[in-house]
Design a protein around this nucleic acid. Sequence first.
DNA 1: CTTGCTTTGTAGTAAAATTACAAAAATTAT
DNA 2: ATAATTTTTGTAATTTTACTACAAAGCAAG
Lengths: 293, 293
Amino acid sequence: MNQMNKMDAWPKEINLIGEMRSALSHLNKTEKKIAQNILADPEAATQKSIAVLAKNSGVSEPSVNRFCKRFNTTGFPDFKLKLAKAAVSGIWETVHPVRPEDDAGKYTTKIINNTIANLMAFKQSVSYQQIQLAVEALIRAKRIFIVGLGGSSATAKDAECKFFQSGLSACNPVDLIMQRMVASNYDAGDLFFLISQTGETKEIIEVAELAKLNNAPIICLAPEMSRLSKLSTLKLQIGRVNSLDRLSFSSQATYQVMLDILAAGVSVEKNAPARIVNKECFKDCYKSYLIGN
Amino acid sequence: MNQMNKMDAWPKEINLIGEMRSALSHLNKTEKKIAQNILADPEAATQKSIAVLAKNSGVSEPSVNRFCKRFNTTGFPDFKLKLAKAAVSGIWETVHPVRPEDDAGKYTTKIINNTIANLMAFKQSVSYQQIQLAVEALIRAKRIFIVGLGGSSATAKDAECKFFQSGLSACNPVDLIMQRMVASNYDAGDLFFLISQTGETKEIIEVAELAKLNNAPIICLAPEMSRLSKLSTLKLQIGRVNSLDRLSFSSQATYQVMLDILAAGVSVEKNAPARIVNKECFKDCYKSYLIGN
DNA sequence: CTTGCTTTGTAGTAAAATTACAAAAATTAT
DNA sequence: ATAATTTTTGTAATTTTACTACAAAGCAAG
């Protein structure tokens, strides 16, 4: 059937709304009327009956029905269902860049939606096997050195904290010289956990190279195909929905979630509950520190 | 109507699935049969007709219809629609705690879903006005001191980095003594940005008290009603879906997103693009630092 | 055990969606 | 240009689905 061939040529989007949008230019007059009517307010379309939607679009009911089937749905009700899913909070709609004219409400929802979109993309792209391997490697390691620079320094610090809570011996050297020292002096059981948003920062690649020279295992949290990634023994990659402008940092949140996952994995594998972080257990320690009070 | 009173007493959840789950114990025999049938596989329920669902649950069609109306929907189709939205990737389902028997696939999706659920709850609870006020205060401030301890130290570091990128003068003193020093020596234009997961840590409250003694403005990122929150001039609170076990840290990711939002807000308000973080601009700086290479 | 109330189901009704078919456009060939 | 063919669109009938009115069954208080 001719129609179906046309359909197959349409680029596959992550959801119905995206599919409709990209198909728009390939549609004929009647189909376009329907698509535009739905896209104008997808949320509202999910509440309408086929009769109302047909009338609003200025077409007949069977035309609407045919339109639905053309988008790989069994009929109008199924189409509405999928539309409703796609329209949930407008989350799936690729990425909303923050614009200078946005008010607090706008940029707040945009950033949250972008972060969620990134997490969803992450969920689809993540390799459970890589995570399993990383968790095993982390548990096996006697000492874990975590390095992250610039924007990733906070992520590295976060990793240190979370890994420690999961009962690992994690250390995050913050200065360049210290980083080189640990990388140059490899002991059996050491593991390097390197974090970089770009995977191209000269200084972190240096650390990776030094570690590699000593045949130390390296886990990296970096973009695919980056130089850092190539130097690593085990690569943890994070996909993002789209390239993001400087105003949204949402990919970093995804990095943090990856750390949550690894820490949880370690706790699960070790079959031990996470370490308690109650202040009470530090009480005595604090006393010796503080003068007075 | 008696029925409606009962309904009102049910705790309001963020979505249909959660509502059904928490209502389960209050339901009568027939209603429970329907609810359990739907909850066993909500995704599948969205595909069924009222006749099939009634048969599967061992009740009559009107009972299903009445059941739907009891959950604030106009009828079965509307119910299915809302159910489909709630079931999108199983995200909204309150919280999935990580269990020791979970494999990598299980805990990975659970943690991602939990994080997304938290972000959605955050989106619903966040006050745009508070964000607007915080952004204005941050811009107004001459110096911003960011303090966070323990699990929040990474968040504090992250804030320092993001605020700097947005063109603010942010500083994150990491040791206790330094923190007290800055809190005790208030200069006009100083602002304290205090981050705590509990809002009850003694040391950060001390900092807040010292700052308050000097009438310094304090913005806090802490749970509602906490001691830290009470000491602050401006409170940024983050709601979470549910109390989380130690194995999932997803609330921290929400904190980070809040920082993203504030940084974006500052950039937008100042009408200036975020600072460039290209290594190139640091080149000369690096040269003077490094010996050789 | 009976009265009054609530809950559940049966049967009929209304609405919504789908199909079959015919009319109207559009395309191609002559 | 026009007839023939194909494709697209709409009308009307059919089928499916959901809803309503009412009656029967179950339950609690007197």
